[in-house]
Structures are given as structure tokens and as C-alpha cells.
Write a protein that binds this DNA or RNA. Structure first.
Lengths: 156, 156
DNA sequence: GGAAATAATTAGCTTAGCTAATTATGGCTC
DNA sequence: GAGCCATAATTAGCTAAGCTAATTATTTCC
């Protein structure tokens, strides 16, 4: 562990600025999501389902930090829209697995592409050195956040 | 504008990773907000009100990317909780200004401090060089996002 | 001065958060 | 093996928060 000349005030200031940047980025990208035709909660849940593969309702609720009844409802809506299916879990008949349909998967990938392209259009104005710095910083941030690698899924 | 050896695919990949990092950070910090006692939409609106000072309902709705009736309701709830006041706007009698109470301001600052301290606790595991890289990258990101400096307020 | 535009609010609907209650299944102890 | 407790999902009821439509009051423009 390297020596750290930064005092706690500066570390907090850096945390503050990182926090602000994250908010700013996501606020910027939020506008792109209306084109998916589903709301934030459904899109977020769909993202987990697509990236994690079939997942129990319980685990999905946990990943989204909501209770099971809430997630049951969100899944209802996704199912009605033809974006996910509910499957019986052979290992545990109390459980149900939620799986994305091809339609759901396509919708999610399209939405994500839209966000990424939009953000890239902002990053384009930076030079090579700046982009390189962002790349390095992202590695550091990823490392810092790796306290619990159990759920490593990003969502919109 | 410096020469840029990065092709569009790599720029998109960087955007994708920046996007993911932003999501990851905010998802991490979200858990701290329940201690404020108000929900995400109210906390976000309160943050704008506190940092921007008294603001019209219309502008607040715009800043939060919701319609006026929605924001009217959110402000109703904040007012009931004693966190904001509605004032007549002397310049335009159609308008109403929303101002944070001392109680609202205190709640917001406490919540923000909680988030920042939590994030700082993760950043603590990084060394000086890594922190410096994050600092530089944040400058670059800030520059990239500065297309519309009109609303430069960060919210939870 | 009058018509059109604008700001805020209310009503009605849907989505999404919670807790409480219920039903079926799984695990553990005797 | 039986019974009890824990667990997973769903439903019901409530509140919060998103939208559109409608209304009222004020401002702006011709």
C-alpha cells in the first residue's frame, strides 16, 4: 500500500467531484432512454436480466435494491411487453427464473448502443492524452469499487 | 484539435466503460440515501433547489426532466415535510419560486456528506498516482460534458 | 384591447416503491 | 418420516412519482 500524501479533505473533495461527474453523465444520458419505449425501472431490470442471463425473481429484486413484490410487478410489465419470460426453476420449485426474450435482448442492446454513442459524441472533443487519462482513471475506479464482485452488472 | 489515433470503436468502448462506471458508482451510493428519510425524486429536486437557490417550478421541472404537474406534486411533498417553501415571484405573477428551508438545506447537506464519505471510503484503497489520474480524468470529463453550461447542478 | 402564449395547479390514469398477508416449497430437527 | 420454521413468489392495499388533459390566472404580442 503506497504512501498517501493526500489528507482526508482532498480525498473527500475528489469523491465529491467523482460523484458529481457520475450524476452529470447519467443525467445527460437519461434523455436517450425514452426511445426504448419502457420506463427507467423496467429498463434497468431488463438490463440485469440480459447481462446476467436467467435470474430468479429474488436475485433480480436484490440486484435492483427493491423488494420482491415490486420486482414481481415490474416483471409482469416486461412480460406483457414480450420482453421477458417466467420459467419454473427446476432446482427449487418455489423459485421462478426470469429470462429475456430475443425482443427484450434486442431492445436492451439498442438502448445501450444509443447511450454509448451519445456519450462518445461528447468524448470526441477530447484529445488522445485526455482519453488516455480517462482510461487509466476508469481502471483505478474499477479497482476501488471492487469490494463486492458478486454483482458486477451495470444497468441503465 | 490534436490528432486522434483512436478509431471510433475504441472511443465507443471508452464511453461504454465510463457509462458503466457512472452507473456502478451511483448504484453503490444509492443505499446511503434512505437515511435522509425522503425518496429519490424529492431528494434530487431538493438538491437542485439548495444549490441553485430559489427557482421557479417550471425551471425546476426542466432541470429534473419532468413535467410541471409532476414537479408540483414533488414540491407539495417537500413543503409538507417542511423542507421547502413556495414564494410568489414578484417579476411574474404566474410563477412561483421554490426555496429551501434551513431544515431542507441541512437535510440535503447531511445526505450529500454521507454519500461523499462513503465513496471516499472506497477511494481510500487507491494510491496517490491513481487518485491523481482520477483527478485529471475528471477535468477531462468535465470539459467534454460542457456543451451546455446553463444547468451545471449535480443532483443525487 | 384582444388573442395567443405561458405558469401553476388539479384530476385521472399508470408505473413503481413499500408492508402485510397468503400459498407452496424446501430445510432442519427430533 | 413428521412437523415446524424458513424461504420464494404473488396478491392486496397504500403512497410516491411519472404522464396527459383541463382549468385558471397572468403575460406577451399584434
Amino acid at each position: 500500500m503506497a504512501r498517501r500524501p493526500r489528507n482526508n479533505g482532498s480525498l473527500q473533495e475528489l469523491a465529491d467531484r467523482l460523484h458529481s461527474a457520475a450524476i452529470h453523465i447519467l443525467r445527460l444520458l437519461r434523455g436517450q432512454d425514452s426511445k426504448t419505449g419502457i420506463g427507467p425501472a423496467q429498463l434497468s431490470a431488463l438490463s440485469v436480466i440480459v447481462f446476467a442471463g436467467p435470474i430468479s425473481l429474488k436475485d433480480l429484486a436484490g440486484a435492483e435494491q427493491v423488494k420482491a413484490p415490486t420486482m414481481s410487478r415490474i416483471v409482469d410489465a416486461l412480460q406483457r411487453a414480450g420482453l421477458v419470460n417466467r420459467l419454473a426453476d427446476r432446482q427449487d420449485r418455489r423459485a421462478v427464473l426470469i429470462r429475456a426474450t430475443p425482443k427484450g435482448t434486442a431492445l436492451l442492446h439498442k438502448g445501450r448502443k444509443r447511450r454509448v454513442e451519445f456519450l462518445a459524441s461528447y468524448l470526441e472533443r477530447l484529445n488522445y492524452g485526455e482519453l488516455k487519462e480517462i482510461e487509466k482513471a476508469l481502471k483505478a475506479v474499477q479497482e476501488a469499487l471492487q469490494r463486492s464482485p458478486s454483482v458486477n452488472i451495470d444497468r441503465p
